[in-house]
């Protein structure tokens, strides 16, 4: 949090220097209007995803929210990440989640007990956190301007690929090892009974 604040402080400083050439909020550009609309859609989908009582619907609303974020990436000119987002999240993760719901026999349709008794606390914490963070962030970045039009392209596949395999190749390889470890871990967890002939082997054998 303090890191955010210090970052905000430096950002304010840089923003103040360029404050004269910054357009106001009341005259948004076309990109901004689009970003805002997609952002509202994304937020609405996300809120629905965490509040709906139909579990499968929640997963589907999550697809909408993640897709919205992909569009936002595009609007921020990070195209490669946008496609990766679509591929991995929408394509893989959500499917995995749907499988999970299916395997745990999540009820289709409205389930009255989707939310736990912890809900008021959760609401209070979330709203407070949102209020605090929005206050801080807006206070810090209200005059900061992202220049998308001028300069070299930033998020094209070309740029990203070059960066990734020039500067970030070692973490990238380390990440591949992590993925392998996760793969092995998932398999170990899913294997049952370690060769023991448990009687419960039949009922969960789908995976």
């Amino acid at each position: 949090m303090s890191a955010t604040v210090s970052l905000a402080a430096t950002a304010t400083a840089t923003a103040a220097s360029t404050a004269s050439g910054t357009p106001g909020f009341l005259s948004p550009t076309g990109v901004e209007i689009l970003f805002l609309l997609v952002g509202l859609l994304t937020l609405g989908a996300a809120i629905t995803a965490v509040t709906t009582r139909q579990l499968v619907h929640a997963a589907l609303w999550l697809v909408v929210a993640l897709g919205g974020i992909a569009v936002e990436y595009l609007l921020l000119s990070a195209e490669f990440i946008a496609w990766v987002q679509v591929l991995i999240y929408v394509g893989a993760v959500v499917v995995l989640l749907l499988f999970g719901l299916m395997l745990t026999r999540a009820p289709i349709g409205r389930s009255p007990d989707a939310d736990s008794g912890n809900r008021p606390v959760a609401l209070a914490v979330a709203v407070t956190a949102a209020a605090v963070l929005v206050t801080v962030v807006v206070d810090a970045f209200r005059t900061t301007w992202i220049d998308l039009e001028n300069g070299a392209p930033q998020g094209t596949t070309d740029v990203t690929g070059r960066i990734l395999f020039q500067h970030w190749v070692l973490p990238f390889e380390a990440l591949s090892v992590l993925l392998l470890a996760a793969l092995v871990g998932a398999i170990v967890l899913s294997r049952r009974g370690d060769g023991r002939n448990g009687t419960g082997a039949a009922d969960g054998g789908e995976r």
Partner: peptide, 13 residues
């Protein structure tokens, strides 16, 4: 584009 838009959206999400 204002940085505040993605930042606030991120906070809300």
């Amino acid at each position: 584009m204002h940085l505040a838009y993605p930042a606030v959206l991120a906070v809300l999400l």
